[in-house]
Amino acid sequence: MRALMVVLSIAVLLAASGCTNRAPKGQGGFAEHNLSSMPEHPVGLENALYFEQQLSSRHLNALLAAGADICFPASVRTAQIRQARIARELQGGLDSDAADDLIIQRDKLNRLERRLNYVQMQETCLPGQKRQLKAADLLQAQAMSKEQIEQIESLLNNNNQFVFNSSQLNPRYIGQLSEVTQMLRPHPQYHLKLTGHADSKGSKSANLKLSLERARQVERYLQIFGLNPGNILVNGSGSGDPLFAGSEPQVRLVNRRVTIELINTNHSQQEAQQ
Rank of each mutant, 00 (worst) to 15 (best):
I149W: 04
Y221F: 15
T181E: 03
G93L: 08
D107V: 01
N160S: 11
G230C: 08
K130F: 07
D137V: 04
E46V: 08
V234F: 09
A98G: 11
Q168H: 12
L4K: 00
N165A: 07
L208F: 08
F30P: 00
Q250Y: 12
T78C: 01
A84V: 05
L192S: 07
A245E: 14
Q168V: 11
L184P: 01
V218F: 12
Q168M: 12
R82C: 01
D101S: 12
L169C: 04
V7P: 00
E113M: 06
E219N: 10
R85Y: 04
L262N: 03
I10Y: 05
R172A: 14
L13I: 13
Y221N: 05
H59I: 04
A84C: 07
K130E: 06
R257P: 08
L4C: 07
L156Q: 12
C125A: 12
S36Y: 06
D97L: 07
L45P: 03
Q176R: 12
R111P: 01
R22W: 13
Q129L: 13
G196R: 02
H267E: 14
Q91I: 04
G44Q: 11
Q140K: 15
R106H: 13
E213R: 15
F164G: 00
Q80T: 08
A141N: 15
S247K: 06
D97I: 04
Q148V: 07
L102V: 05
R185C: 07
S36E: 14
R58Y: 05
E261T: 15
Q217C: 03
L222C: 09
A16D: 02
S203L: 06
D101Q: 08
A98P: 00
G29M: 10
Q274K: 06
D101T: 00
R220P: 02
A23Q: 07
K25G: 01
P186A: 10
L233Y: 12
D107P: 00
M1T: 03
R216C: 01
S205P: 02
L133R: 09
G26Y: 06
Q223M: 09
E271L: 13
K134T: 15
V6R: 08
L60M: 09
V7E: 06
L212D: 04
E213S: 15
Y190H: 02
L138H: 13
S9N: 10
S166V: 01
V7K: 03
V119M: 05
K204T: 11
I152G: 03
Q273T: 15
S96D: 12
N61Q: 09
L63F: 03
M38P: 01
R77Y: 04
Y173L: 00
F225R: 01
L102G: 06
K201Q: 09
G236M: 07
A98H: 09
Q273D: 12
Q122I: 01
R214S: 00
R257V: 11
L116N: 04
N170V: 05
Q120Y: 13
V7S: 04
D107A: 10
N47A: 13
I260F: 08
H41D: 15
